[in-house]
């Protein structure tokens, strides 16, 4: 564990609390993409099957359980109690293409041919693009509530710190994971536009609104 990874994981955790706070505080999931949230649930379930096969640390297991449980809970909140507030008409990104694309990549470039590694690779590829329905929705509506943009920023910052973690691990441990690196780089690049708008607008106390 290093400082980049620890802060990254904590930011990931924080992003989920921010999202739950937004839903609870505004009593609405307006502007939140259910497709992105459902994709994250699929990502966590397919990646963390090693909970049953390998023990790393209490920290590792607790975080995995939290990510699976919280993503399931968010999907439930949006699906059932907050359904009337869900902006379905702007959440129109074709998420099925992302799932099919990630599945094909997972089969073409798996970490190994073990079923767990194929699913792990699929989840890495899927996570890289899972934010797209959310970003697409924000582009379509042209703006987002400030707290929703904090959520996306925390997620993007978590990814950016993972890149620094990999550079650090490469030099200190010789650690290499090409699949995670390439997918992680793609994932971080997807946030580039968002970061720019967030830093120039939201940080100055304005809404996330497209120029």
């Amino acid at each position: 564990m290093n400082i980049f990874r620890l802060v990254a994981d904590l930011l990931h955790l924080a992003s989920i609390f921010i999202l739950l706070l937004k839903i609870q505080q505004t009593k609405s999931c307006a502007g939140v993409s259910l497709k992105t949230q459902a994709l994250y649930f699929v990502v966590f379930v397919t990646r963390y099957l090693d909970l049953f096969t390998h023990f790393y640390s209490v920290y590792n297991s607790l975080m995995k359980l939290f990510f699976i449980a919280s993503s399931a809970y968010i999907v439930y909140l949006m699906w059932k109690p907050y359904r009337p507030t869900y902006s379905a008409s702007t959440d129109t990104f074709r998420a099925e293409f992302l799932i099919v694309g990630a599945a094909l990549l997972g089969l073409a470039f798996p970490d190994s041919w073990h079923i767990l590694d194929i699913l792990w690779s699929f989840s890495i590829y899927l996570e890289a693009v899972a934010i797209l329905p959310q970003l697409f929705q924000m582009t379509r509506t042209g703006e987002a509530e400030t707290i929703t943009s904090h959520y996306v920023f925390a997620l993007g910052a978590y990814r950016a710190l993972y890149l620094m973690n990999w550079i650090y691990r490469y030099y200190t441990e010789g650690y290499m994971d090409v699949i995670a690196w390439v997918a992680g780089a793609v994932q971080t690049i997807l946030y580039a536009d968002f970061f720019y708008i967030y830093l120039t607008r939201v940080m100055r106390g304005r809404l996330f609104s497209l120029p």
Partner: peptide
């Protein structure tokens, strides 16, 4: 028998 790789990151 083949074992899955170890992935220590979240």
């Amino acid at each position: 028998e083949q074992r899955p790789h170890i992935h220590d990151e979240l």
